[in-house]
């Protein structure tokens, strides 16, 4: 009797688990599927699940826009913003975790509060500043802005990771004669590497998907994938095949990257709230 109830519960859980997963994933699946349809197949009613796949949409997308140009911009901006942010955040998080003062908590909360300023509130001045410093429509300019918007969250994540490093290990380093710099580079960083990796991952994802600044601060030269996809949106919205192909191209790298690294990522996302 008990066994039977258990089996039925398990079947229920399996069905529910898969049902919800499929339902949530369906839009992505459908996007990928549609990208392999011809335009006619893409808008057929009722929608077709089985069809002769074609690469014609991809061919057209590549013909119309230089995907590699946008992708390269996205990669450049994401990697640069992440690298600089981590380089700045490591010493800050080290200082907060291992040399706390009365103001540490206040500083951290203030940093996070800067992240809450709606970008649109400062769009005009940032636009004008970028124009005056010739950073408009450059990867450098976009990378700086992305770096600044992500810095508080990166500091916070690293801080929670560093706090998990037992202080005696760093003290042992100090007893062994390590300077602050050696302590940080030779003891702390190797220990916190998994944490730093998942922080970098999150930063890469956030930069990759950042839409507001990339749409407003770039036009052609430095336009990343968010702009690439925007160019396929309004007037030709009804060309579902091309739209899907372009969308798939824009999200595929980060999606695959995210799948591979999700275990790593999740450790960092808990922000110390889960021990």
């Amino acid at each position: 009797m008990a066994l039977k109830a258990k089996t039925s519960t398990r079947i229920g859980v399996t069905i529910l688990g898969w049902g919800i997963a499929l339902w949530l994933f369906f839009p992505i699946f459908w996007m990928i599927l549609t990208s392999f349809k011809s335009e006619v197949q893409a808008i057929s009613t009722p929608p077709k699940l089985f069809f002769m796949p074609t690469l014609s949409s991809y061919a057209e997308v590549f013909e119309r826009a230089n995907y590699w140009h946008f992708a390269l911009n996205t990669v450049t901006v994401s990697v640069a913003a992440t690298a600089i942010a981590i380089a700045l955040a490591v010493p800050a998080a080290y200082s907060m975790a291992f040399m706390p003062s009365k103001r540490t908590r206040g500083t951290l909360l203030w940093m996070l509060s800067t992240r809450m300023l709606p970008p649109v509130g400062v769009l005009v001045p940032i636009y004008i500043l970028a124009r005056n410093t010739h950073l408009l429509d450059t990867c450098t300019g976009l990378a700086i802005v992305d770096m600044l918007t992500n810095l508080p969250i990166i500091v916070w994540m690293l801080y929670t990771f560093f706090r998990e490093v037992p202080a005696p290990i760093l003290e042992a380093g100090r007893m062994d004669g390590a300077t602050r710099w050696q302590e940080m580079t030779m003891v702390l960083l190797p220990l916190a590497l998994p944490g730093i990796a998942s922080t970098a991952l999150l930063s890469l994802i956030l930069c990759w998907n950042e839409a507001f600044w990339s749409l407003n601060l770039t036009s052609s030269h430095a336009a990343p994938l968010t702009a690439f996809i925007a160019s396929f949106s309004s007037p030709e919205g009804l060309f579902f095949g091309k739209l899907s192909a372009a969308s798939t191209l824009a999200v595929a790298p980060i999606l695959v990257f995210g799948w591979i690294s999700q275990k790593q990522l999740v450790r960092g996302l808990t922000f110390g709230a889960v021990k």
Partner: peptide
């Protein structure tokens, strides 16, 4: 500095790297 005092310490948690 601790490293320059000519001391060595064994920690309760061992604190091995």
């Amino acid at each position: 500095e601790p490293g320059k005092r000519g001391l060595a310490m064994v920690f309760q948690s061992y604190a091995l790297y």
